[in-house]
Design a protein around this nucleic acid. Structure first.
Lengths: 112, 112
DNA sequence: TCAACGTTTCAAATATCATTGAAATATGGA
DNA sequence: TCCATATTTCAATGATATTTGAAACGTTGA
């Protein structure tokens, strides 16, 4: 995972509305949520929500798929895990300061 | 860990200079680095560095201690771990989507 | 085709952040 | 005490982010 990518991912999460959105999606799991439902749950106005979803999408923290007239958003667990892995990488010069493991969730994949 | 705290921590890391600073501190471990040394390693100008260190410090991502005329900065591993734990919390509604463990490093403590 | 619904785009206003250089502060040694 | 070193503060500038409402877009069902 590149530093630039990590900064983008962190920036995507470093905002009240987006963190709320992302957590809602993480907690609902792979089924995801329609944009309108996210708006209801979080109280974020549709246009503002769309802006933040695009931001999260651009950071690859969420994915979307059209379903009828709904757009379903889901958390990108693989990116989340890559992000978490990056932050603990090379901790203490690579010495085993303590057992480090990569947090994982369903649908996780490889990361660099 | 409160949402507000998490946003602050994420925002602290979501910036090129600060991520570089933090990673340098993570990799050097508990021994830490003097401000001037961080400036050398990262190429960040002293005044800018000081700004970012204050930001990281305010987010409780780093700690500092005076040592002679040097100020030694160290990564706050406990906060980092709390942060990582928060992001994986309640994943998929609390269902065991896969083994989730809290990444850890030396000197880690409790978190909420 | 038409109207309703769900979502996104756009432009403008406001707020916040990052960088710079100069000056200030504090520590240690001659 | 005086000077050099290490770090921080300050003010100003430029750049980015966030929110809002109105309008546009695409999908569905009548």
């Amino acid at each position: 995972m590149e530093t630039k990518t990590v900064v983008t991912a962190l920036a995507a999460l470093a905002q009240d509305s987006r963190l709320a959105i992302f957590r809602a999606l993480v907690q609902v799991g792979p089924a995801g949520l329609a944009a309108g439902r996210i708006s209801e749950l979080t109280g974020i106005a549709p246009s503002s929500l769309s802006f933040h979803l695009k931001e999260l999408s651009h950071a690859d923290m969420v994915s979307s798929q059209q379903s009828g007239r709904f757009v379903i958003y889901t958390a990108n667990f693989s990116t989340m895990n890559a992000l978490l892995g990056f932050l603990t990488e090379n901790c203490c010069g690579g010495n085993p300061c303590s057992p480090v493991c990569t947090p994982a969730c369903a649908t996780s994949k490889e990361s660099t």
